[in-house]
């Protein structure tokens, strides 16, 4: 933990305006923001730790618990909503045995909803580990999650 964090911090100057970019880099490294890391960031940029925590909790991007191996982000944009996103969320959590958003016990999957990812023409869509899957229905969701990867092209 210590070494990774120091490597990240060494690329910054310790200015207040670097809080968000630093948090983004730390989350990239750990998949979430460990409490210790936020304390160290606060020391690095000379602000109270509560300030860093306040900033981190404001932005939807940041997480405070580790995620599963695969992250399923379900788009909650308007186009997706009117074309059935609620059913996609329902099916995803049902297949993975989750009660709403969260991480499966075996730490394989984390399900979350995200603001519009801008693929409205492919609504409803989800991203799995940053790969977009569009034109979904309940059946396609089951296939996707069973394989843990993209469906065949064509």
């Amino acid at each position: 933990m210590e070494e990774t964090l120091q490597t990240i911090l060494s690329k910054f100057d310790g200015k207040q305006e670097e809080i968000i970019p630093i948090l983004q880099k730390v989350q990239d490294a750990y998949t979430y923001l460990p409490e210790e890391s936020m304390e160290q960031i606060a020391r690095f940029i000379h602000v109270p730790a509560s300030r860093v925590f306040g900033v981190a909790t404001f932005y939807a991007q940041f997480r405070f618990t580790p995620t599963g191996k695969n992250i399923v982000s379900i788009c909650r944009g308007t186009a997706c909503h009117v074309r059935g996103a609620p059913a996609i969320l329902e099916e995803t959590t049902a297949v993975l045995g989750l009660d709403g958003e969260g991480t499966t016990e075996d730490m394989e999957y984390t399900v979350e909803t995200v603001a519009c990812i801008g693929c409205c023409a492919l609504a409803p869509c989800v991203t799995i580990n940053e790969e977009v899957h569009g034109n979904l229905n309940k059946k396609k969701v089951r296939t996707l999650l069973a394989k843990g990867s993209k469906p065949d092209d064509g």
């Binding site: 909650r76 944009g77 308007t78 186009a79 997706c80 909503h81 603001a115 519009c116 801008g118 693929c119 409205c120």
Partner: peptide, 8 residues
């Protein structure tokens, strides 16, 4: 920071 849902 285009955040409107349904806009790209």
């Amino acid at each position: 920071d285009e955040g409107d849902p349904g806009a790209f």
